[in-house]
Amino acid sequence: MISLIAALAVDRVIGMENAMPWNLPADLAWFKRNTLNKPVIMGRHTWESIGRPLPGRKNIILSSQPGTDDRVTWVKSVDEAIAACGDVPEIMVIGGGRVYEQFLPKAQKLYLTHIDAEVEGDTHFPDYEPDDWESVFSEFHDADAQNSHSYCFEILERR
C-alpha cells in the first residue's frame, strides 16, 4: 500500500524555501509514529532540507540527478522507488510537492495534518478530489505552549 503523509496549511501550503513555516512538535511526533519502520520516499529537495537519513526507516530518494550519499537509496523513477521498498505492507511518501503529485494517483491512504495557519509558501500539496477519499480518523488539537497553531490529524482512505 502506498501512503502519503503531509502537513498542510491553508491553501495546501506545505513548504517555503525548503522548510515548513510553522513550529508543531506534535506533528513531528505524528510523522515519526506513522513512518517508523517503514520505507520513506522523498525528493532530493526534501532530502536536502532534512540533511540526514531518517533513523529507523529505509530512505529512498527520487531524483533525476541521483546523489552520492550511500546512506540512502537513490532512484530515478516512481517504479524504481516502489521496487526499492521491497515487499512491505506500507510505503510512506513524505514529499515534496512534485513527489506527492507523482504518487497521489497510486496512493491508497493519506495521513494529513491540517494546520490552521495562513502562511506564504512556494510548495503545495497537490489538489485531490475529496469525494474519492473517506475520512477514517480525525483528531483536532488547539494551539498550545509547544505548538504554534491549532491542527487536525486526519487519515483518508481511497474509496
Rank of each mutant, 00 (worst) to 15 (best):
V136M: 11
Q108N: 08
P89D: 06
G97L: 02
Y128E: 03
E120I: 11
E48Q: 15
D70F: 12
Q65F: 12
R71D: 11
V75Y: 05
F137N: 08
T113C: 07
P53R: 13
S63A: 15
L28W: 01
S150M: 04
Q146A: 08
K58Y: 11
P21A: 07
A6M: 06
A9F: 03
R52C: 14
H45M: 05
P126D: 04
W74G: 02
E80W: 05
W74N: 04
R33I: 13
D122P: 00
G95K: 02
G86Y: 08
I14R: 02
D11T: 07
R159Y: 09
D70Y: 13
C152L: 10
V88W: 11
H141L: 04
D122M: 01
A117K: 04
D79L: 07
N34S: 11
I91E: 01
W74P: 02
L54I: 03
A83R: 08
S150T: 06
A83Q: 09
N18Q: 14
K106W: 12
N34R: 10
N59R: 03
Q108Y: 10
L156N: 04
A84P: 01
I2K: 01
R44V: 06
K106M: 06
S77A: 08
A9N: 15
S3L: 01
R44M: 08
Y100T: 00
P130D: 11
C85M: 08
P130L: 12
L54N: 00
E101L: 08
V119G: 03
I115A: 04
H141T: 05
E90S: 03
L24E: 12
E101G: 09
S150G: 06
Q108V: 07
R44Q: 07
D87Q: 12
V72I: 13
E17S: 05
A19F: 15
Q146R: 05
L36Y: 11
V40I: 11
H141V: 06
V78G: 09
I94L: 10
G51Y: 10
D144A: 05
N18A: 08
V78N: 11
N147S: 06
A83M: 11
C85I: 14
V10K: 00
D131I: 05
S49R: 00
Y128L: 05
Q102T: 11
N59Q: 09
A83C: 08
E80R: 07
L4N: 01
I82D: 00
I50L: 15
P39S: 06
H149T: 08
E154G: 06
I94N: 00
M16D: 03
P55T: 12
